[in-house]
Write a protein that binds this DNA or RNA. Structure first.
Length: 422
RNA sequence: GUGACUGUAGCUCAGCUGGUUAGAGCGCCGGCCUGUGAAGCCGGAGGUCGCGGGAUCGUAGCCCGUCAGUCACCCCA
């Protein structure tokens, strides 16, 4: 039991074959983003605490209780990145990117939040996300959503739905907030304790309540759609139209409300019905006010963040487990002399063949080494013993068909192997 | 931060109402088998029973605390 030196709470180690699934997902992400014309941004894993306080919102849960904050040796307050949007905006601002026109950026990497771990929730988790800045047009919202949709489609994740909503802007949202307060306040006593608090701080979030005693009042609450100003309504219609053009199915869900303070107009979530309580795989929206609030030019922007842990969880529960393909060659030497003779070939194969080349240095018998070949999932074995050595041969064994084939051993071996590559 | 459940070998778990040297399967190492693989048989290594207190003649099983895991709440990816 590794009792003392264990990974910190809420963090995970990844080994093969799981780490291979991460590599594959990341490779797909890079290629997908490239096809949509997005370029990768990498930012520091920690930033000055002030960035998140200003960017995410002082009263947000993230800032109030979930940040990994520490003072560095110079007495500066630093925070491990709890989300990517603020750092991306900071970096773009710092290097004057917004002055150069619209920007399409994407990122992949860890975030840190001090929370109680549970299914689909970790203290270190990983996000893929994109930020499309410089377009106020609804087509940009749809582009961002379509990119996420394509990734889900590529993995054929079933049971995922896109929930779409508009939460208005600084003109119409306050009016709706007042209407919600007016609706719920007379029934304050019958609301759940959590919702009583929500009514104070963020009435919109009340719509998202899971408490059964709140349900009835939520059903009869005024709809935000009726309060949208003409501009917001037109934008929302435009998003829907562009989604239809892109062939992305959606459901309008008036209860979708994002937790971060900076969202305006469009908000959306991709939720899976095969996950636990944390069933949001990907979420995002428009944040037209964030760039300027961080001291930049008035720049509209829209983006999303996708949780890689949750994404892979959804892939896994979709149950498309493919068998590990046999790949590579187990180089087997029997005896010290054969081993020394085999080493140059191993080195050459590793440089030239493109296959994984496995070798055991344990001075084991043939039988034991073949078992190791199985464990390595090798496709072939190259066997060199005393006999072969004196006869100038090496045996290539196909581990699937269990057939042997003699090859010349020496300078010609590589060539002979090259011929059997399909 | 709140709540519920769990914590015995690398992994999955047994261990009956507390009673002498804590078990199995898988995995690992070796042998049967001078050189042809997923099986079989035999043997071996590997355990502070999460950790710390307490109660008891005595506990891995009881009590308290603590840490960790799992799931849910708050909130979020």
């Amino acid at each position: 039991m590794p009792s003392k030196l264990a990974a910190p709470r809420g963090t995970q180690d990844f080994f093969p074959p799981q780490s291979g699934r991460w590599q594959e997902l990341e490779a797909r992400i890079h290629s997908l983003a490239r096809r949509y014309g997005y370029g990768e941004i990498r930012t520091p894993i920690f930033e000055s605490t002030e960035l998140f306080v200003r960017g995410v919102g002082e009263t947000s849960d993230i800032v109030e209780k979930e940040m990994y904050t520490f003072d560095d040796k110079g007495g500066r307050s630093m925070t491990l990145r709890p989300e990517w949007t603020a750092p991306v905006v900071r970096a773009a601002l710092q290097h004057g990117l917004f002055a150069q026109g619209p920007q399409r950026l994407y990122y992949v990497g860890p975030i840190f939040r001090y929370e109680r771990p549970q299914a689909g929730r970790y203290r270190q988790s990983h996000q893929f996300g994109i930020e499309c800045a410089g377009y106020a047009q609804p087509e940009a919202d749809a582009e961002v959503i379509a990119l996420a949709w394509d990734l889900l489609q590529a993995y054929a994740i079933a049971g995922v739905t896109l929930k779409l909503n508009s939460i208005g802007d600084e003109n119409c949202r306050p009016k709706y907030r007042d209407a919600l307060r007016a609706h719920f306040f007379p029934h304050l006593q019958s609301l759940s304790a959590d919702s009583q608090r929500r009514l104070e701080r963020n009435p919109l979030r009340l719509l998202d309540s899971k408490a059964p005693e709140d349900r009835e009042l939520i059903e009869s609450a005024p709809a935000l759609e009726d309060f949208l100003c003409a501009e917001c309504r037109a934008h929302f219609d435009g998003v829907k139209r562009a989604l239809e053009a892109a062939g992305v199915p959606y459901t309008v869900d008036p209860h979708i409300v994002r937790g971060l303070d900076y969202y305006t107009r469009t908000v959306f979530e991709f939720v899976s019905d095969s996950l636990g309580a944390q069933n949001t795989i990907c979420a995002g929206g428009r944040y037209d006010g964030l760039v300027s609030s961080l001291g930049g030019p008035d720049t509209p922007a829209v983006g999303f963040a996708l949780g890689l842990e949750r994404f892979l969880w959804a892939v896994e529960s979709a149950g498309t487990s493919e068998e590990a393909r046999r790949e590579g060659v187990q180089a087997i030497a029997i005896g010290e002399k054969a081993l020394q003779a085999l080493l140059p070939l191993v080195a050459a194969l590793r440089r030239a063949s493109g296959w994984p080349i496995f070798i055991d240095y344990g001075d084991r018998k043939l039988l034991a080494q073949l078992k190791i070949a199985d464990r390595n999932n090798a496709r072939y074995a190259l066997i060199l013993g005393e006999q072969e050595l004196t006869e100038g041969r090496i045996v290539l064994r196909d581990l699937v068909t269990r057939t042997d084939r003699p090859l010349p051993f020496g300078k010609d071996t590589l060539e002979a192997l090259g011929e059997m590559r399909e």
